[in-house]
Design a protein around this nucleic acid. Structure first.
Length: 446
RNA sequence: GCCAAGAUAGCUUAGAGGCGAAGCGGUUGGCUGCAGACCAAUUACACGGGAGUUCAAAUCUCUCUCUUGGCUCCA
């Protein structure tokens, strides 16, 4: 299968370092606030990618860091008079809850920055020993002049970075040198002991310390949002390849496109910031997942009520089809008819996880399905195929029946309504139906 | 300024030299007491502008315009 890598800017056959094993790392959130739908987009995409790779027979180990020490967390703590640790734990918990609600369950291990302080300090020390990093009075910095390949991921030249920015006063050798360790002596901020005095790690170092600890200096896939390419991922490559002398650190760099809200970037100042919690009050997780997957993971996606509604309508039409074929699935999984469409589906997924193309193949299948001609075996095969699709997408195609046994009151209302209909008192029965619909219950007569 | 992605019917999304684009939506009919679902039809004459290559371009080349993002924290 082919996978696009930001590093080479093209698709390449997926080759792993270790047979059918894939080590995949995706940058996790900074836990200072609730996760928003943009996080949802990225993590749904990588969850689906993992699901598909496993479907292909790879044993995938999906590692994700949790940034639990950071300026924003500290700031948030000060604002609310809570310890940074309290803030971090609270939002980490809520993040993981949110992911479960989105059926994003693929992460095998969450690694907190603060649980890997020893590895972070160790890696910084080695960078100093190797001559890549230096200490100043306020921290330890990576000297990018020592690593000429800096810029290879983001396609940037160091000289060009200088032209259009105001350069703040620092005691760094070069203003592009980035922090590995920030000295914080005598403040009320969280600190850890290090050979360079008390302080906390820079932003980039936790990821390479964590991935080196679990995966070693080289691994298969590194993912994250498009916005992390520079400087974050660039710095990761720089640190890791400098310290190990091995390249590439990662061959396949996968980056998800942005999610915009009604054509605009989501931001708190524009007041169009939507958290996953808020979203899930309006729509179910399957609809959101389907909406996300109906666009390729690298493309920008525009979130709007309209577009969500459309995704829901499209998903419903697949569900109705699934219901119909399920009822007719009576034999063996054996179908010549299906093969064309299932091949098309898997070919699309093999083409850099091209979910919109894969979804189109499902509609080709639906359109070609002749309910009078096909056999029970065909329908069984279609059903099992769609069950696989459902697993890969992480989306249920079952139509949720509010199974009557769960609520006696609803049964009673339904019985009364049925009786009214039998007596042709439609005004009243329709009123009950409309009101129940408004309350979110699906009432329909077959 | 530099880097990147993009501009395809009302909306969303495929296609990457020639083969009626798909879904949503709309319309009509069937089924229904009605609605939904389902079925059958139908609709939209799509490819940002300009130039070039070609027998042939949405697809290749050039150019312009515009959109979004990155270059500071960001999924």
């Amino acid at each position: 299968m082919d996978v696009y890598s930001t590093l080479t800017r093209d698709k390449q056959e997926l080759e792993t370092l270790n047979d059918n094993r894939i080590n995949m790392f995706v940058c996790g959130p900074t836990v200072y606030d609730d996760a928003h739908i943009g996080h949802g987009r990225t993590y749904i995409a990588f969850d689906t990618i993992k699901r598909y790779l496993e479907h292909k027979g790879f044993a995938v180990f999906y590692l994700q860091n949790i940034t639990d020490v950071d300026d924003k967390i500290i700031k948030r703590g000060k604002e609310s008079n809570l310890s940074p640790e309290h803030i971090a734990r609270k939002y980490e918990k809520r993040y993981i809850e949110d992911m479960h609600k989105l059926n994003v369950n693929g992460v095998n291990l969450f690694a907190r920055a603060t649980d890997h302080m020893a590895e972070i300090i160790n890696q910084i020390q080695r960078l100093i020993d190797l001559g890549y990093a230096y200490e100043t009075e306020d921290g330890v910095y990576f000297e990018i002049a020592k690593f000429p390949e800096f810029g290879k991921l983001s396609n940037r030249k160091v000289e060009e970075l200088e032209t259009h920015r105001e350069i703040a006063k620092t005691n760094k050798k070069d203003h592009n040198d980035f922090a590995l360790w920030k000295k914080r002596e005598g403040t009320d901020e969280p600190i850890w002991q290090s050979p360079w005095g008390n302080g906390r790690p820079g932003w980039h170092i936790e990821d390479t310390a964590i991935t080196e600890y679990y995966f070693g200096p080289q691994y298969d896939i590194h993912g994250g949002g498009l916005d992390l390419i520079f400087p974050h991922h660039e710095a990761e490559i720089t640190q890791m390849e400098a310290v190990s002398g091995k390249a590439p650190m990662v061959k396949f760099w996968l980056h998800t496109g942005f999610l915009n809200v009604s054509g605009e970037k989501m931001s708190k100042s524009l007041n169009n910031f939507i958290t996953i919690r808020e979203l899930l009050e309006e729509v179910d997780a399957d609809t959101f997942r389907f909406f996300i997957l109906s666009t390729h993971y690298r493309s920008p996606i525009d979130f709007s009520k309209d577009n969500l509604h459309q995704a829901n309508a499209t998903l419903n039409s697949i569900r109705n089809y699934y219901k119909r074929i399920s009822e007719k699935a009576t034999g063996e999984n054996d179908s010549q008819f299906l093969k064309v469409y299932s091949d098309k589906f898997y070919n699309a997924m093999d083409d850099d996880f091209h979910t919109p193309k894969a979804i189109a193949s499902i509609f080709n299948l639906i359109k070609a399905t002749d309910f009078k001609e096909l056999s029970g075996n065909d329908f069984t095969a279609i059903k099992e195929f769609l069950d696989n699709v459902s697993d890969i997408f992480g989306i249920s195609f079952e139509i949720e029946e509010d199974n009557g046994s769960s609520d006696e009151l609803l049964d009673l209302i339904a019985d009364v309504r049925l009786e009214l209909r039998n007596q042709k008192q439609y005004d009243l029965s329709d009123k009950i139906r409309d009101n129940l619909n408004e309350l979110g219950y699906d009432v329909s007569d077959s």
